[in-house]
Simulated assay, not measured.
Amino acid sequence: MPTPASPDRPATVPNADRGTPDARRLTDAVTRLRRALRASIRSDYPWETLPMAQVELLQVLAEHSPARIGDLATRQRLATSTVSGLVGQMITSGLVARATDPGDRRVSAVTLTDAGHAQLAAWTRAHERRLDTALTRLDTADRAAVRAALPALFRLAEHLDDSEH
């Protein structure tokens, strides 16, 4: 586990001086960020029980709605049966609704409900507050480095998406 940063002691960066490939270090950093955010959000906001797979489906539906189950599965790189099960759970929770696809009456399409929009907005606000708090604890140089890295991280994500097609 890394050593927490303090004014006298910078945070320990795993594998920083051991010749570890950048891809490995980035994998470690992303994994740690996701784990830390997931753990902290549940302790700071105990109401947050939405599984990440459902959050990701809500995010996709917020951008691409209505959507067929097969299209959601393709976008999320999941099996159709997995997405169908998640959608079933989300219908039960009132987060999404299933209706006949206007383009093809034989197929159903999934849309976000008002409750789904509200839950996604609350999830987003909670995560933004948590990250904002953590970012304010960084020194100016680290905050600038994070900000400067964001465009490259988005491009990296695009390249990862492109490599799958």
Rank of each mutant, 00 (worst) to 15 (best):
Q89M: 12
Q89T: 13
Q89L: 11
Q89S: 14
M90T: 07
M90K: 04
M90F: 01
M90D: 02
I91R: 09
I91W: 00
I91L: 02
I91N: 00
T92L: 09
T92C: 02
T92E: 14
T92Y: 09
S93T: 04
S93D: 07
S93Q: 09
S93V: 06
G94T: 02
G94N: 04
L95Q: 03
L95Y: 08
L95P: 01
L95M: 07
L95S: 02
L95E: 00
L95H: 03
V96N: 04
V96M: 05
V96L: 09
V96Q: 05
A97S: 15
R98F: 00
R98Y: 01
R98M: 07
R98W: 00
R98Q: 13
R98K: 11
A99M: 11
A99W: 03
A99S: 15
A99G: 12
A99I: 09
T100H: 01
T100F: 00
D101V: 11
D101G: 07
D101S: 10
D101N: 13
D101E: 10
P102S: 05
P102Q: 05
P102K: 01
P102T: 04
G103F: 00
G103R: 08
G103L: 07
G103Y: 06
G103N: 09
G103P: 00
G103K: 06
G103Q: 07
G103A: 12
D104P: 09
D104N: 15
D104M: 10
D104A: 12
D104V: 10
D104F: 12
R105I: 15
R105A: 15
R105F: 08
R105E: 14
R105P: 13
R106W: 13
R106N: 14
R106I: 12
R106A: 15
V107T: 07
V107R: 09
V107F: 08
V107H: 00
S108L: 02
S108R: 04
A109F: 03
A109P: 06
A109K: 05
V110W: 00
V110S: 02
V110T: 08
T111D: 12
T111H: 12
T111I: 03
L112E: 12
T113D: 11
D114M: 05
A115Y: 07
A115F: 03
A115D: 14
A115W: 03
A115K: 13
G116C: 09
G116A: 12
G116Q: 10
G116W: 10
H117Q: 10
H117C: 06
A118G: 09
A118T: 13
A118F: 08
A118H: 11
Q119C: 06
Q119W: 05
Q119K: 10
Q119A: 10
Q119P: 03
L120E: 03
L120A: 02
A121H: 15
A121F: 13
A121E: 14
A121L: 15
A122G: 05
A122Q: 14
A122D: 11
A122Y: 04
A122H: 13
W123D: 08
W123E: 09
W123G: 03
W123C: 03
W123I: 00
T124I: 07
T124M: 04
T124Q: 10
